[in-house]
Design a protein around this nucleic acid. Sequence first.
DNA 1: GGCTAGGGGTTGTTGAACAATCCGACAAGA
DNA 2: TCTTGTCGGATTGTTCAACAACCCCTAGCC
Lengths: 252, 252
Amino acid sequence: MVGGEQGSTGAFGALAAERGRLERTGVAQRVAEVLRDHITEGRLAPGTRLSEEALGEALAVSRNTLREAFRLLVDQRLVVHELNRGVFVRILTPEDVDDIFTLRLALETAGVRAAPRAAPERLAQVRIALAQAEAAEGRGDWVAVGTADLRFHQSVAGLAGSMRIDDCMSRLLAELRLAFGAVPTAHGLHEPFLRRNQILAGLLESGESDDVEVELTRYLDDARRVIVTAMRAAGPGAPPGPGPAAVTSERR
Amino acid sequence: MVGGEQGSTGAFGALAAERGRLERTGVAQRVAEVLRDHITEGRLAPGTRLSEEALGEALAVSRNTLREAFRLLVDQRLVVHELNRGVFVRILTPEDVDDIFTLRLALETAGVRAAPRAAPERLAQVRIALAQAEAAEGRGDWVAVGTADLRFHQSVAGLAGSMRIDDCMSRLLAELRLAFGAVPTAHGLHEPFLRRNQILAGLLESGESDDVEVELTRYLDDARRVIVTAMRAAGPGAPPGPGPAAVTSERR
DNA sequence: GGCTAGGGGTTGTTGAACAATCCGACAAGA
DNA sequence: TCTTGTCGGATTGTTCAACAACCCCTAGCC
């Protein structure tokens, strides 16, 4: 997430890929990660207010550090900041989901278009994600299927070989996770899309660029529709997660 | 930039659109704007180190507020933050420019694809930007031509009608401005691309979707090549701007 | 020459304080 | 009853000062 490397891969190019892991993180970044996990896992319901004082005490960090963490989360669109009112866990509207899928289509299309010229590692990533999804399906672990599904699409966009596209995409998918709180993670929801992921992958390997594109467009269109209708059905005011968050108060 | 409105336009729907204007801005945001302008106009050369102490004194804001502003600039990728080392004005490598154009192609392609279904205001924006560029050309104001050119492409991507695509795109173009410091703003540079903007617009109006796409691809490919070669020619260590920045020290 | 230890300077983090702002509640008036 | 004005509590915005942690550079050592 830091991003500003100007690369000079020395003789240890293989190690260079691991750079990001030892990138030392300040307290603020770690706080942001904790909050991000809580949000994307639905433990902090959308609309929840994140009080500086309460959270600062709960996490044992100063207000200033917490505010720094908030800025990172605002950057990822997981929370919104309103002047003199504080920060709130983002509420995704159906219109947001619509918008997200528009951008998603653009990014993934860029990926499949570049597929014939893509680096072998990138294609491998696609296969790996698909395999993970299938394995999770075998175990009946549907939340893992969901994760693998996101990773699959992340790597499809990754075929473009562009750092910025990767970035955009992961940001987008994190945001999309916010909507998953509204749609129950069920068998029937993921199963058909897993099949279509396999179809997509197959088309990708066979190099039928145009076919992949039309299938991808249909795929995303259907997925969008499923999520939007699920959101509309669940309706506002009914975030299904059991709300154990005592640290924070609701939005008005 | 705040973004989290969930609309309930009452009887004053017309006014609701103006909401964003009274969105008050904190000191940090204004500081960030000042710095952004200085950077994009080349008054702060890439690689310049932005010392918290020096800048805080120069702008008469506290270190904490300044750090808040830095976060916003990091978000826009205009500066990079290195832990325990500080923030530096971003140095764009040719690889970065390459990457930027990959994403740019994806976004603008999304725009032209949606052109047939685009809202009339969006199409109007394209025409306006083009007209502005032509007017600036008539005046011989080549920096204005450059600005209008960016706005033109921004509105092309805008045809997709997606808030997030607009966002991505403006972010991208701000970043691209960083590279413009390395390429002299000259007649010969902009003039051919202005012509091709006109061609693009013409194709857009006539609805020849496929033709627009291939022309756009060629266009961006050429533009990328021009900028990259210009950067390579200027080479590292020769940022052409006269460096009046006494507030800050160079990077090592 | 190459390596280690130390020092100067910068950033990271904290805590406290005050000002600005928002929100809800209460009261006064039509 | 409904609207409007005003007040007070609570939260955020901003600043300041201090210390710890860290990086880079240099001096000295082998």
